[in-house]
Design a protein around this nucleic acid. Structure first.
Length: 446
DNA sequence: AGCACA
């Protein structure tokens, strides 16, 4: 038999084509890099990047067959291999004669991302975790999640294509950081393309879809009725149902956390209607009422585990209360109804709550609250004296920009290192070490 | 390091 039949299957068997097949490319090689590579040999008229399962292959198409031949023959005898970013690239003629660029929606930059969550435990990734992850790049308008043959997927809507692109390039192919997932949940890798959508239609707030631009959207009936009243948490356990009222407990309370401090912190996410503080189990807890569940959800996920003051002081733990409407009988330094401008001001007694008995309140409190004058403006009381005019007005619409201003502590209680970094949200530039989404560094992600 | 998709 002739030796011809035992020739290698590849490399010598490809007939010339003006399309070249490139492999072993660096991650997310850009079209521009391919054009640079081919330019010395001719005019690159088309490219296709991110081909193959590893997305490290590509095609380049020359205007003329001779240009493709020139490139192949040059590198066939070159001592220096073709390289992109210092990585050797392997070239050969493609087995096709032209690049067919099916530019799909996935290739056209848009403001909505299609996110596929890969991994055995992908379904255990909550919409809240996704929101947190993507909020690091800008205000997330809406999220929908669904199951398709591709697996567990989500559509994430940003304001514009630029924001979406920054999120896509930072997160595509990365894994959700371990510290955002319960320990037993395996790695969850994000695969991101653009979606053809520009505006998602979210009918209800539910465990499957959220509209962060419209907190008054009704909660899905399925999320209210008995059968699915409890959402399933990341750890697979039942969680308390979402509520417009949050229960915040304050751990390691080295410095006074006044009603006004809480009001300021929680107002960053929307109108705070009522606050009631009380002592329980040797610590301080507070109930914070928002007008709607969605605002409370956003506040909870943003604030949970964060410290009001630097150094681990006054760490917040937040859960949903069973209350839906607090009954504030008096305004004093422990309870406040911001919706009623002239509730009687009483310093002696703490609040009496609504349907549930008041948690035990010890009258021995050392937290000397500032003296409040009853609000007379008809809306909200001004911050107490110590905060003065240094407290900026808190806009309601964009939580992502809320907490970036410095907190001025009450006089006499100035803790060390209080600063603007505290409890900052992920979309802000300077991220404090304890901010959950701070370590989005590609080199630390899998 | 070995050929693309809705």
């Amino acid at each position: 038999m002739a030796s011809v039949s035992s020739q290698p299957q590849f490399r010598y068997t490809q007939p010339p084509s003006k399309v070249l097949h490139l492999r072993n490319l660096p991650w997310e090689c850009a079209e521009e890099e391919l054009i640079e590579l081919g330019k010395p040999f001719g005019k690159v008229v088309n490219t296709k990047c991110n081909v193959g399962a590893n997305r490290n292959q590509a095609f380049i198409e020359f205007a003329d067959l001779n240009q493709a031949i020139a490139m192949i023959t040059f590198y066939a005898s070159s001592s220096e291999p073709a390289q992109v970013r210092g990585k050797t690239v392997y070239l050969q003629y493609s087995n096709r004669q032209e690049i067919v660029n099916n530019k799909t929606a996935a290739d056209v930059a848009g403001n909505v991302l299609l996110v596929t969550i890969e991994g055995a435990d992908a379904r255990l990734v909550s919409i809240d975790v996704l929101h947190l992850v993507f909020s690091a790049f800008g205000f997330v308008h809406k999220i929908t999640t669904f199951e398709k043959t591709a697996g567990f997927q989500a559509l994430v809507q940003f304001s514009d294509a630029e924001t979406a692109t920054s999120a896509k390039s930072a997160l595509d192919g990365r894994s959700i950081p371990r510290y955002l997932l319960p320990e037993h949940v395996g790695p969850c890798t994000l695969r991101i393309t653009y979606s053809g959508h520009t505006d998602l239609s979210v009918k209800f707030q539910s465990h499957r879809s959220r509209d962060y631009t419209n907190p008054y959207l009704p909660v899905a009936p399925s999320a209210i009725d008995g059968s699915s009243q409890f959402t399933v948490g990341l750890d697979g356990k039942k969680l308390e149902p979402e509520s417009n009222v949050l229960l915040a407990s304050i751990e390691n309370m080295q410095y006074a956390v006044t009603l006004d401090v809480l009001h300021m912190v929680f107002s960053a996410f929307g109108t705070v209607q009522k606050i009631a503080m009380f002592d329980k189990n040797g610590g301080v807890q507070a109930l914070i009422q928002y007008p709607d569940v969605q605002t409370a959800v956003v506040a909870k996920e943003a604030l949970e585990g964060h410290c009001i003051y630097d150094g681990g002081f006054c760490k917040l733990h937040i859960s949903y209360s069973r209350h839906t409407d607090l009954s504030i009988k008096v305004n004093n330094d422990r309870s406040r109804d911001y919706t009623i401008p002239n509730v009687p001001m009483v310093n002696a007694q703490p609040s009496i709550l609504g349907q549930q008995p008041v948690p035990a309140v010890t009258p021995t409190q050392q937290y000397a609250g500032p003296q409040f004058a009853p609000a007379e403006q008809g809306v909200m009381p001004q911050p107490s004296a110590g905060w003065g005019s240094t407290v900026p007005a808190v806009p309601q619409s964009m939580p992502g920009q809320m907490l970036s201003h410095p907190y001025m502590p009450p006089p006499g209680t100035v803790p060390p290192q209080i600063g603007p970094g505290m409890m900052q949200l992920p979309s802000q530039g300077s991220l404090p070490p304890q901010t959950m989404v701070a370590p989005y560094r590609p080199d630390q992600m899998q």
